[in-house]
Design a binder for these strands. Structure first.
Lengths: 114, 114
DNA sequence: TCGATAGATTGACGGACATCGATATGAGGA
DNA sequence: TCCTCATATCGATGTCCGTCAATCTATCGA
């Protein structure tokens, strides 16, 4: 359709910037949120100011208890959640640090783009 | 360890807020970025102010041409990239709209948390 | 029209992941 | 100490995904 620069493809690309490790780390962070159940968990924890126990996550998610536990572990391993034992129950809350990191990753992209 | 509220688990949870469709849509957005190769592509497109053609993505990614094409399709289907045909070459660029949406999703979470 | 080239599509393969039932762990309460 | 209950872990299963070689499509140059 649109014909421009028929001679060569395109100019030299800007500095690579991102290392393999950085790209993988960023992808892992997004991977932790790449599931509806985990998005819901983060949503619940974000809207609730306080830590939430697992027993209040199982029912609204509509998933079995082992599956919920599995997702919580994934989020915790990714550094997004904090686990706190209160007697018999386990309470989870968002880690501010991780959310800020996620925020910064996206913002950098937005700055370069917009 | 820490003993609090030994009687019951925790108070009633705040409004659900997120629908199934919203959770899935958000997860799909993150899923599009849940791969190192796609993170790199977005990084290259963000650092380069101009659209970039596929021939300049294959080599720095260290992946075969079909694989790069596959990732570009995924990002495009997710609404993150825009494709433009210039003669024989295909140029890709970031869609500002999508990046802003991603930014807003993360910001809402950050607001509730921090 | 024909050959060359950029990029997309297809098919196959191996690995990762979400999910569940069953079971293990660990903390309270009796 | 035994029982109960909340949560984690294990093992199995089906599905999705990243990757590549081979092939198809479309555009340009001759």
């Amino acid at each position: 359709m649109t014909l421009m620069e028929p001679v060569s493809c395109c100019g030299p690309l800007a500095a690579p910037g991102l290392s393999d490790a950085e790209a993988t780390a960023t992808a892992d962070l997004f991977k932790a949120l790449a599931d509806p159940a985990r998005v819901r968990i983060v949503n619940v924890l974000a809207t609730s100011g306080e830590p939430v126990c697992v027993c209040h996550l199982t029912e609204p998610l509509g998933l079995s208890q082992p599956t919920v536990s599995h997702h919580l572990k994934k989020l915790t391993d990714a550094g997004l959640l904090e686990r706190e034992q209160r007697g018999r129950w386990a309470y989870f809350s968002l880690r501010r640090q991780a959310v800020e990191k996620l925020s910064s990753v996206v913002e950098i992209t937005a700055e370069c783009c917009c």
